[in-house]
Computed example of a mutant assay.
Amino acid sequence: MNSYSFVILGGGIAGLTTAIALKKIGIDAMVMEAAIEIKPVGAGLALAANAMMALRKIGVADQVIREGRELKAFSIYDQKGKLISRTDTDPANSRYGISNFTIHRADLHRVLLAQLDPRNVLTGKRSVDFTEDSEGFLVRFEDGDQIRAKYLIVAEGIHSPIRRKLIPSQKIRYSGYTCWRGIMDNSDLNIAETSETWGKKGRFGVTPLAKNQVYWYACINAAGINSPLKNFTKADLEENFKDFHFPIPQVLAGTKPDQIIWNDIIDLDPLPRFAFGNLVLIGDAAHATTPNMGQGACMAIEDAAILASCLENNPKPIQAFELFEKRRLSRTHRIVQDSWRLGIIAQLENPLLMTLRNTFFRMIPRKVTQKQIETLYQVDLS
C-alpha cells in the first residue's frame, strides 16, 4: 500500500490547479483521477478576471492566455435579437488589469496537466470510501486499490462519495432546466460576440473560442431530472430554436451531432463547512454551482490559489484548512445562490413576466451593471 503526505482526489480543474499551486510552494501532492484515461473532452468555458488573477498568482496565466480568446463584452438579447443588457469586460475599463477569456475545457485541461510531473497524476482511481485513524486517511478505490494519505484534499466534483459520507444530509438540487452544449467551426459565420438569448422556448448562449471555434449551450425547462428531453436530437433542438434570431439557427445547423453533449443543470445546496480536520473540500465537491454566472471553474481556480496561500502561511495543515474555510464560505455561498436566482429569471416562460423582466434589465444603468461585475471579480488572493 502506497502512502503519501498530500493527496488530491480528482483531476479536474480544481484538482489540477491546486496541485500546481501547491507545487509552487514546495508541496508535491499526488492527484488521483477517477477516469481511466484523461481525454480531451468537454465544451467551452469562461475564465473571468477573478480566475485569471488566480492563475496569474499560481503562475500559469500566460499559458492559458495563449490557448484562449479574450472576452471583452457579454450581451443578452431577446428572442428577436433586441438587446436586453450589455456588460463591458474590457480590462481598460477595469481596475484589475487582466481580461476575461474563453477557452475549450480540453485545452485548459491540457495546459494544467503540462505543469505537473506525470508520475504525480494517477488515473483509474475513483474513490468509494475512506476511514480516518491516528496515521491519517485510508482511501479505498473502485478498482480495489487503497492508499494512505496524511492530508486529503477532495476535489472530485458534485457527486463526491467522500463528501456524501462527511455530510450525508446535504442535497444536490435540480435547477428546473436541462442543457445541451456543442462546439462548431466558426469559419463561415465569423461570430465575434459572446451572447445569451432569453426566449419563450428556452435560453441559448454563443461564445467564440480560439482556433476558429464556437461554443454554444441551450437550456430548456424540464419538469424533472432525466426528463424525456434528454433524448432530443439535433433536429429537435433546431425545431425548438428555429424562431430565434441570427446566428442561433445557423449555429445549430453547423454543429455535427457527435459534437453535442447533454446534462441536467444541478448544483449543491450550500454546505455549512469545507474543513474536516486534515481533510478539506474544494471545487464542485464543496460549492458546485449552476453555470449562469460563469463562475464554476473560476471558483475552483480561486480555491487553488487561496488554499496554497493558507498552507504557505500556516505550519499546520489543519489550521490552513480552517482558514481556507473561513475565507471561502461566504463568497462561494453568495455566488451559488446568486447564480441559482439568475437561472430562474433567465428561464422565465410566462410572456408577461418575460416582458417585465426585459424592461427592468434594460432600465438598469450601465454603471450599475459594471459595478456588479467588478464586485464579482473582487477576491482576496493574498
Rank of each mutant, 00 (worst) to 15 (best):
M1F: 03
S3K: 11
L9V: 15
I20L: 07
K23S: 08
K23F: 01
M32Y: 09
M32A: 13
A34Q: 15
A35T: 15
I36F: 12
A46W: 01
N50R: 06
V60M: 02
D62C: 04
I65P: 05
G68T: 03
E70P: 10
L71A: 08
K72S: 12
K72H: 09
A73E: 14
I76N: 02
D78H: 05
K82I: 09
L83W: 00
R86N: 10
T87M: 09
T89M: 14
A92D: 12
N100V: 10
T102Y: 10
I103Y: 06
L112Q: 11
P118V: 07
P118G: 07
R119T: 14
N120I: 06
V121T: 13
L122S: 11
T123W: 08
R126L: 08
S127R: 00
T131F: 06
T131Q: 12
S134Y: 01
F137L: 01
Q146V: 08
K150S: 02
V154L: 06
V154R: 03
A155Y: 03
A155R: 06
E156V: 00
G157L: 07
I158G: 02
S160R: 05
S160Q: 06
S160W: 02
I162E: 02
R164P: 11
R164N: 15
S169Y: 01
Y174T: 05
W180I: 03
S187H: 08
D188S: 15
N190R: 14
E193A: 06
E193V: 03
S195G: 09
G199V: 12
P208G: 02
A210Y: 04
I220V: 14
N221C: 13
N221Y: 06
A222P: 06
A222Y: 04
G224H: 13
I225Y: 09
N226M: 04
T233D: 13
T233C: 14
A235M: 10
E238N: 13
K242W: 09
F246A: 13
P247S: 03
P247R: 04
I248K: 02
Q250I: 09
Q250T: 13
L252D: 01
P257V: 11
I261Q: 10
W262M: 13
I265S: 07
I266M: 11
D267E: 08
P270T: 01
I282G: 02
A285P: 10
A285Q: 05
T289H: 04
G294V: 00
G296E: 03
M299Q: 15
A304E: 02
L311D: 07
E312F: 06
A320S: 05
F321P: 10
R331L: 11
V336Q: 12
D338K: 14
I344Q: 15
A346W: 06
E349L: 03
T355Y: 01
N358Q: 12
I364Q: 00
T369L: 08
Q370N: 12
Q370L: 03
L376I: 12
Y377A: 08
Y377L: 09
Y377F: 13
Y377T: 05
S382T: 13
